[in-house]
Amino acid sequence: MENKGTAVCIGEDVDTDMIIAGRYLRTKDRKVWADHAFEDYDPDIAGRLKGSVIIAGKNIGCGSSREQAAIALKEAGVLAVVSPSFARIFFRNLVNTGILVFETDEIKCKDGDEVIFSADEDRVEVAGIRYDAKPISESMKEIIRAGGLIEYMRKRR
């Protein structure tokens, strides 16, 4: 199944504190997290996340393993995250939150580029250029299709 989104392009080594700053973790209000996503990296990004695909440089999600970073992205409306490499815990937090992940070669992009992606075919197309992604397991795809690990477990009862 093919999906579309709009590219939000960020650099490499963007850590989870840049995705959601620690000062916002005093609340459990996910909307607050979404509203302040990437605030210390670029304060204009949060308003562009709905329906977006984050195209990142290598090593996205490094630093602390805070799951709130993935939750903030989900709440903000991010459809997928694409990067040449992920911090492993962040990668799994994205999957467990229900966000598609694509590990690809580095992608040159501009904010607003059209992104077409398919989890079934493990591919991403940015501005008309196709990139093959490293396949993820079928069990991870099932978790993402369910909307995250909690929903996946509820459906299995």
Rank of each mutant, 00 (worst) to 15 (best):
G22R: 08
I143G: 08
V32Y: 02
R156P: 02
A21K: 03
T16P: 09
R157P: 00
M140T: 01
S137K: 10
R157K: 07
G11R: 04
Y24S: 02
I99Y: 09
D13S: 14
S52T: 01
A72S: 15
E138R: 10
F90K: 02
P43G: 09
E151M: 11
C109R: 10
I116P: 00
P43S: 15
A46N: 12
R88M: 05
M1G: 12
K4R: 14
L25K: 06
M140Q: 15
K110H: 10
I19L: 05
E106Y: 10
R154T: 01
C9E: 07
K110N: 14
G148V: 11
A133R: 05
G147Y: 12
D13F: 13
V53Y: 06
S83N: 07
K4A: 02
G5R: 05
T6G: 00
K28H: 01
K141M: 14
L49F: 08
D111F: 00
P84K: 08
M18D: 11
I71E: 14
S52M: 03
D122E: 13
T6E: 05
I20E: 05
D44T: 15
S139P: 00
T97G: 15
I54K: 10
K58F: 04
A127S: 15
V32A: 09
N59Y: 02
L49G: 06
I116L: 11
C62M: 13
L100T: 06
D120Q: 13
V78I: 10
C109T: 12
F86W: 01
L94I: 05
I107C: 10
I71K: 13
Q68D: 05
F102H: 08
K4G: 00
R66F: 08
E125P: 00
R66E: 10
L79G: 04
R92H: 06
A34F: 13
N93G: 03
L100F: 14
A37K: 11
A146V: 09
A70Q: 08
D122Q: 06
E151L: 14
C62Q: 11
G63N: 07
K28M: 06
R23Q: 14
S64I: 06
A146L: 13
D120T: 11
A70H: 09
L79T: 04
T27F: 00
D120Y: 08
V78G: 03
K28W: 00
H36D: 10
F90R: 02
N59A: 07
S65N: 12
L79C: 09
R92Y: 06
V8D: 05
E12C: 01
I19G: 03
D44H: 07
K50D: 14
S139A: 08
D40R: 05
Y131M: 09
V78A: 10
E67P: 11
R130T: 13
S52L: 02
A127E: 13
A56F: 05
G128Y: 00
E121G: 04
V53I: 11
E2L: 07
Y131A: 09
V8G: 04
L73G: 09
V82Q: 12
D15R: 05
V81W: 01
E39T: 02
C109E: 14
A37E: 14
I129G: 00
V124R: 13
E12W: 00
K141V: 10
E151Y: 11
G147H: 12
V81S: 03
I60H: 05
E142M: 14
E114H: 00
A76N: 14
E106Q: 13
F38N: 12
R130I: 12
S137N: 01
M153W: 09
R154N: 10
A7S: 08
I129R: 15
A80R: 07
R88E: 13
R123K: 15
E138M: 08
A119Q: 11
